[in-house]
Amino acid sequence: MSHSIEDIWKGGFISNEALVAPKINDLYNQKSKNIVDKFELMFKWNLIGLVIFALLILIVLSFKGIPYLGLFIAAMLMTLVIRGRKEQASLALLDKDVSSYQYLKAFDKWMKDLMVVYAKLYSFFYPALFLSIVLQFRFTDICQEGIDGFVKSFPDTILIFSTPLYLLIPVGIIAFLLHYCSGPLYRLDFNSLYGRMFEKLEELISDMEELRR
């Protein structure tokens, strides 16, 4: 080949008017496939789902005669919704009209911040959910009968709030494990869904940074 790439390019596009744009129909109603828009949509539906779930939990548990547990779980879910709304607002502020590096960095930072925030929230959400269920169960007749039987068999057992210490210890351990495992579990879940996207973003940013050095 005897021409330079500049010549090939110029020769290939002698007239820009000769380029025919693809037909587009009803563009404004098209679904976006941009990462940021996908996240916005996912967030919107996640939040709607959480609100519906919170209401359902409240109604179902109220009918089951345990409205306080329902109220507590619904309140915790609504905390996630409120936080999610805040994140949603910050995502909408990401500007595409900046340099590619700034845009990718801003999105990468948003994703990482989001993971940290939710990992922290879930590390409290799961133990709190578990403890509230245990607490509710503690006040049932079945549980009381079980504890009475346990105390009869082991009369020298230590009681804390009328509950044997031997039962409180595993509950505490499970709550502790849930606290420490929820964050990594959330990250694992997040990565399994968006790992490829993360990798792509990391590659692009590292390429950009090499270019900036």
């Binding site: 080949m1 021409h3 790439i5 090939i8 390019w9 020769g11 290939g12 596009f13 002698i14 007239s15 000769a18 380029l19 025919v20």
Partner: peptide
Amino acid sequence: EELIADSKNFGEQSINQL
């Protein structure tokens, strides 16, 4: 082809290769 209607003389093939 329809995207480079003006490229017949010089190099549709070349631009494709590029």
